[in-house]
Computed example of a mutant assay.
Amino acid sequence: MSTPDRPFASYHLWSLVAPARGQERWHCQMRRGFIKARQHEPQVKALLGQATAPQRIGILAQKGVYEFHHHRHLLHQSDGVEQVAQLLKLSKSTEQVQQRVLQILQKYHDDPLLLDKNIVQLTPGDEGFPKPILVEQEDYCFRLYAAMDCVFIESDRTLHILDFKTGKSAFDQRQALVYLLAARYLYPGRKAVASFYNLELCKKSDLISINNGELESLKFELANIAHKHQHDLQKYQEKTSNFSKIFPPNPGNHCRFCPFQSICDFSHQPTQSYPMPSLRTNV
């Protein structure tokens, strides 16, 4: 197998390497192994291609917001929700997905968060990987990927990065921090804040900002994650039979929610403790 390219970091990778606060007991490094090291294997690729109902709802909700603002007149029409639902081909989704997405579209139509905002960027949510940002310091270098849902300019010229959510999961501030780091490169010299908005619950997060000291610490943290992950991939490519040692499992009741349960050798084993690799591995 070929040697991996220059190391990369993203919020998604960060979440796979290290759990969100309070989620430690459910975090499994083997999931990262399936997603990032074995993603081209036919069985794994097939499982990765199957979007769950919550994923479908999130994708369609984001695309719905995009369509409302791409066709702004629909925000003012009584049948705007029905027209956006047709644009989304919502009738092809399951009943559960249809009902929840329709509720989200109706709530947004009734109270459109981005109405009259100076929108710089609004993505449909299915645009694929963004162009990487090269983060380069004297002692490290990595590619940063940050796919932002929405960027708009506040009345005081502050850049506001907004990430849309659905479901009941708590907001993970690390995602906002990655966006704020990306904004320093994409919009140099601009003051920026970030926030989350749950389209289903109509719930806003507090505004999140970052100072220069925190920014440098964040870059160092992401560099460590990028290099650790690259090191793990190299070790796996050298000896694929060490998969469970490089990406140790953490089996338990939470396995029933894992997309790889059907092909994981550890998913049906009783809960037991496995050492979690340090984020500070030197590579």
Rank of each mutant, 00 (worst) to 15 (best):
V97Q: 05
L102K: 14
E216S: 15
H229K: 07
K107E: 07
S93Y: 01
D79T: 01
Q103D: 12
A146P: 12
A61D: 06
A223E: 02
P19A: 10
L87H: 00
L199C: 11
V151P: 01
L218Q: 02
H73D: 05
Q103R: 14
E82I: 04
Q99V: 07
A147T: 07
F142D: 11
F171Y: 11
G125I: 07
V65T: 04
S155K: 13
D206H: 10
Q98S: 00
F8T: 05
G252V: 04
R25T: 09
F129G: 00
C264A: 06
K165M: 09
P130S: 03
I57E: 10
E67L: 15
S2R: 08
L48K: 07
F171D: 08
F34M: 06
A37E: 01
L144M: 06
L113P: 05
P7C: 04
L159Y: 00
P188E: 07
E24R: 14
P19K: 06
L144P: 10
D110N: 14
Q234V: 15
A194Y: 02
I210Y: 00
A226N: 14
Q39W: 11
R157Q: 15
A170D: 04
L88I: 11
K219L: 14
F8Y: 14
Y140C: 01
Y236N: 12
V17Y: 02
K203E: 15
M1Y: 10
K36E: 15
S273G: 13
L279R: 08
Q77L: 14
F129T: 08
A183Q: 00
L215F: 08
L180N: 12
L279Y: 01
K92M: 06
L201Q: 15
L90R: 05
F142N: 10
K203H: 14
D156V: 09
V193S: 14
V81M: 12
D172L: 03
S217F: 02
A170G: 02
A146F: 09
D156F: 08
T240A: 14
G125L: 05
Q175C: 10
L113K: 12
G49A: 10
D156K: 08
N118Q: 15
